[in-house]
């Protein structure tokens, strides 16, 4: 029997964000927005969901007067992403 795919990651935008963060040390909100081609509001909601699950950390700071939102993937997030990819592999093999 196949394992269920993590519903938190099984969404296009959240999966996109996690894939980007897996390849980066850290990324700014504007970068994620540009690469995922999403709206600020939608991205913000999805980032909060990932953060509440402990998959990413969100740090708010300032560069001069410009507000910065920096996202980083956590160990829990890396584990969840790897499990998601492994389950995905099982689905494709089937």
């Amino acid at each position: 029997m196949l394992k269920e795919l993590d519903p938190l990651l099984h969404s296009q935008l959240r999966l996109g964000v996690m894939s980007l963060l897996m390849s980066a040390e850290s990324a700014e909100f504007v970068y994620l927005k540009e690469k995922t081609n999403s709206t600020a509001g939608n991205l913000s909601v999805q980032l909060d969901k990932l953060s509440e699950a402990g998959y990413i950390t969100i740090e708010k700071s300032f560069n001069g007067k410009k507000p910065l939102t920096t996202c980083k993937v956590t160990k829990k997030g890396i584990k969840a992403f790897e499990e998601y990819v492994n389950t995905l592999r099982d689905y494709i093999k089937k």
């Binding site: 519903p7 099984h10 969404s11 296009q12 935008l13 959240r14 999966l15 996109g16 995922t36 081609n37 999403s38 939608n42 999805q46």
Partner: peptide, 8 residues
Amino acid sequence: METKNDSL
């Protein structure tokens, strides 16, 4: 990018 997950 949309957030629908049932169609993925």
